[in-house]
Amino acid sequence: MTPLEIDPNIARRYREPGAGVFDPALGSRNRWGGIRFLKTPSAALATAILAFGILTAIVGPILRPGDPLRITGEPLIQPFVDWAHPLGTDVLGRDLFSGVLFGARVSLLVGLSVAFISLVVGVLIGAIAGYAGGWIDWVVTRGIEIFQTIPGFVLLVVLVSVLEPSATTVIIGLALISWDAVARLTRAEVINHRSREYVLAAETSGVSGPRILFGEILPNIAPTLIVTASIIVASAILAESALSFLGLGDPNAASWGSMIGSGREQIRSYWFPTVIPGAFIVVTVFALNVLGDALNDFLNPRSNG
């Protein structure tokens, strides 16, 4: 930039204590944010687990080709004995390792799609209601209230059983019972930010409504929404597993929940067909929750002690 001609009166202000003195300690934190985040041990561990999970979901079918629901060996082989079936087989002789690999696929697909859909829908509806106010807000608030009145899981069970059970209906059903929480949160945050001075300042300088909402306010509530997204992925995985456990999931795909459901009959004598897939659910959801907590600490530093 070429140096501008500066009025001497203005130039003298450079020397003032209030002006032009930067504290290097404060530095810009945005550039190296990602790396600093991964330096937290828990965040690094959780990210590693999830990255591994996503990787197995992608390459799993290459590793263990073939339908995980077909019978491949003797029934109820114990885990860690037979290298052809490292995690053993279930009562019908289906390989548990293949099942677990395919289950990762279902869980992550469902979790991520539900989070994506309910985030897009919830943020849009909540943000518009919070910013517009008036009757739009009134209608949306009542709508959210109604969705919070109907027990989500009961509604989900009814919907999935009424429609044909498939991955798509499960995802749509879960999104239908998850969007309201996002909308409620977004609405509250937008209302909170709408009266702040930086928004008023943008308004007085002629910035248009949509630009204020999406350019000024949303970047400020994004951290909260990112944390919420990780919670939705986790709870969608839990709900999907419960659905397939009840036998209401996609009958043509192996999933962790349905494996537990079919292992349940032998629970008195054989623990592993129930315990192994359950352990995978717990580890995955745990990693997501650790990630959510770490993101929260990182993005909203004041919120925790």
């Binding site: 986790a234 597993s241 419960a242 537990i260 349940r264 359950g278 659910i281 717990v282 959801v285 997501l288």
Partner: peptide, 12 residues
């Protein structure tokens, strides 16, 4: 951990 366990599995 409790927050990450499906209720039916902890039941089992």
């Amino acid at each position: 951990v409790l927050y990450s366990i499906p209720s039916f599995w902890i039941g089992l």
